[in-house]
Design a protein around this nucleic acid. Structure first.
Lengths: 243, 243
DNA sequence: AGGCCGCCTTGACCTCGGTCAAGTGCCTGC
DNA sequence: GCAGGCACTTGACCGAGGTCAAGGCGGCCT
């Protein structure tokens, strides 16, 4: 919560390394210039909060680099990690478009550079270029899919299956698969945060890891994970019912 | 699954009783005429399936009347009821826009009349009238909110709280609140389906109902529910942690 | 160095909700 | 009328995961 040490930086949308991955890639140069003018760029350190649940929504955040966790809390103070956002992802477009306050919070998990594109800018771009709206729509559609999938999982699958699923998802971005089906994974998350992602307590996370070790499904040392046979993880998924 | 007895009917978008509630209300008369031509209207009986998970998505469904349940199933055959859709709601816009197959299924819970607006029609309308896209976007934003809320609830709240929450949601549409805080509710759902909505088994639903009766929180007879003090339901929500 | 703090692990215990099996009441079809 | 089916309820049992309390381990501070 050290809101003080966020450093303003001056970046350029045209040279942004993540440009190709953003929704903004459908914009013309003129339109992109608008974004470039209307944005504020900032650096965040791990633990820094980009916005809080309940904060007023002033525009849309675009991740240039780093890793962001989207968290949501309930009345009782239980917190879960809804998803991870990566360079090129746009955050907060949803609350912005719906005209709501933010309904979840965003926290840097790694040192990150994030641009805030002001509300006025976004609105005028949406008018100028309807394709942009459709891009956001597709994005929302995907997020919705993921969320519904997660609802289903969290009520029907046991913890082992959910954890296996998490590892398989992380594999795509953080894993290296070698030719004979073995997998090496460098986790971007603490155990606590992994627990928060599948909606369990840290203690249960520890126990689940241990049980994977005991069953020789995966081996953990710090944030490095080695899985000898990926199929074992996939098997875990179906293990919800022991057919 | 009696796909045979779906009756085709001939309805008119201009006189549709639900018109004002749909996303389509932003259309001009000309555009609406397009929808009217390009639609196929059908009647469904309770239990009839409008579309299945995995079905190809040919367009967008619009509910004229009735009640639809959106279900999703996992690999092990566990099914949950993600949400209810009412007259004026549009279904399947998401898979359609994302270009995917349907990723959940829709089943009539009451006799319903539903129009299918063909993909071509929708696409050309989106081009003609960008506002329509923004309406869908807002809709998606709300669905996403609800879904994320549900993820949180299903991992953090105990069954009693989730059930209380469900009753409070149903209240808005199916309840009558009298002056002194008492609530009468006519449930649109079977116990099984209520169980599916909060991700539990029918047996647990029964037990939860009984425990509400024993605590004098609510009284059930068939699908009629009487709640003497709504505050009791609200209290249940926070009861996740006994502060 | 020593001490502190946060992350992680472990064990003992308990509870909520799932599972299995049986029983009831209602509705439909013969 | 009776039989079968389905939604719902109930009881007995059990196990996954939460809770509480106690350490271990490493990083960072003075």
């Amino acid at each position: 919560m050290n809101d003080g040490d966020k450093t303003e930086t001056s970046r350029n949308c045209f040279t942004c390394q993540s440009r190709g991955r953003t929704e903004w890639c459908v914009l013309t140069d003129d339109e992109l210039a608008l974004v470039d003018q209307g944005k504020i760029s900032r650096q965040y350190l791990p633990g820094d909060v980009i916005f809080h649940e309940g904060d007023e929504c002033h525009g849309v955040h675009c991740i240039e680099s780093g890793l962001i966790g989207i968290r949501k809390m309930d009345a009782a103070g239980n917190e879960i990690l809804l998803r991870l956002n990566h360079p090129g992802d746009t955050m907060g477009y949803r609350s912005f478009l719906a005209g709501n306050d933010h309904n979840n919070s965003a926290e840097a998990l790694e040192p990150s550079v994030i641009c805030l594109v002001g509300g006025g800018t976004v609105r005028s771009l949406l008018e100028k270029n309807p394709t942009l709206g459709l891009r956001f729509l597709k994005h929302a559609a995907k997020d919705l899919d993921d969320a519904e999938e997660k609802v289903l999982q969290s009520t029907t699958s046991p913890v082992r299956a959910r954890f296996a699923h998490l590892l398989l998802v992380l594999k795509d971005r953080y894993g290296v698969t070698d030719e004979d089906g073995a997998l090496d994974l460098e986790l971007p998350l603490s155990r606590q945060d992994m627990a928060a992602m599948i909606g369990i307590r840290p203690e249960s996370m520890s126990r689940t890891i241990r049980s994977f070790e005991e069953d020789d499904i995966a081996h953990f040392s710090g944030r490095r994970v080695h899985v000898a046979r990926i199929e074992d993880l996939i098997l875990e998924l179906e293990h919800s019912t022991e057919l």
